[in-house]
């Protein structure tokens, strides 16, 4: 279970998160919707441990432990995964090499033995099949020359391989055509599990037709201004965010 309490964050004197509260229970899929610039990516970066953000107040508790003291790698080993809105390219580093380094770094941090290469390949191939990623992609440098959709699929492949406790998907649907959206959503749905929770960030309802959330939260100006069930997403689709901008301003 992840619990965010009164999170206040600024960057270069700009207040971006203004006392944000949010709880996601084990096995729950929570969606966050909100207009551009409302602070959704900032929230995901702060949870994942990107530096440069100044946390002025609040806590982020993963199973009761405040993770704000940990660096990004420690949070990853503790089970936090962020599927990036814009995945980075790592020239010269083969995708399989990267996956192996990442997985074994996490295992090491948890005091586990490294995974053997054949076992790793088996797991990667299994995940790749679900996500319809061609095998020769795994030999290419990570994300270099991948299309937007291919990058997003590779994010979900990493998520499947690393088996995180808490997954954040930051606009995973942006840049996906309808087929890719289905493939990625199927991939995510396969990972739904009573022991795993998700925070799905999007500003379109369409992703939530595929990954059906348990709860929907509306974010505006750095706060959660309304929470509800999946029907809230439909309401937003129909009425837009205007009302909530108003709410945030109050």
């Amino acid at each position: 279970m992840i619990e965010i309490k009164n999170l206040v964050v600024q960057i270069e004197d700009n207040r971006i998160l203004n006392g944000l509260d949010l709880k996601v229970a084990d096995g729950e899929v929570a969606a966050i919707m909100g207009p551009n610039g409302s602070g959704k990516s900032t929230l995901s970066y702060v949870i994942a441990g990107k530096e440069d953000y100044e946390v002025l107040d609040g806590e982020v508790l993963l199973d009761g432990e405040n993770i704000l003291e940990m660096d990004a790698a420690e949070r990853a080993a503790a089970g936090v995964f962020l599927a990036f809105q814009y995945p980075l390219e790592i020239p010269g580093v083969g995708t399989m090499t990267f996956l192996k380094a990442a997985l074994n770094a996490q295992r090491k941090a948890r005091g586990e033995e490294p995974l053997s290469t054949p076992e790793l390949i088996k797991r990667v191939n299994a995940a790749g099949e679900v996500l319809e990623i061609k095998r020769d992609f795994l030999k290419r440098a990570l994300n270099v020359g991948f299309s937007g959709g291919e990058k997003k699929r590779m994010e979900i492949l990493q998520m499947a391989l690393l088996e995180p406790r808490f997954c954040i998907l930051d606009e995973t649907d942006s840049g996906l055509d309808i087929d890719a959206l289905r493939i990625v959503s199927d991939g995510v749905n396969k990972l739904r599990d009573p022991g795993r929770s998700f925070l799905v960030i999007t500003h379109y309802q369409r992703l939530l037709n595929h990954i059906v959330p348990d709860t929907v939260h509306v974010m505006s100006a750095g706060r959660i201004v309304k929470s509800g069930g999946k029907e809230l997403a439909l309401e937003l689709e129909a009425n837009g965010y205007a009302d909530y901008r108003q709410l945030a301003a109050e």
Binding site: G49, A72, R75, A76, L88, I90, G92, V93, A105
Partner: peptide, 29 residues
């Protein structure tokens, strides 16, 4: 870039490991 480094660390690599991996990619040829 800090972003590249953060990306690697988000996947579990320590900061030094992340830098070494990126550098090794850079010199691969």
């Amino acid at each position: 870039s800090d972003d590249q480094k953060f990306y690697c660390m988000q996947r579990g690599l320590g900061e030094e490991e992340a830098v070494a991996l990126i550098v090794n990619g850079f010199v691969k040829d």
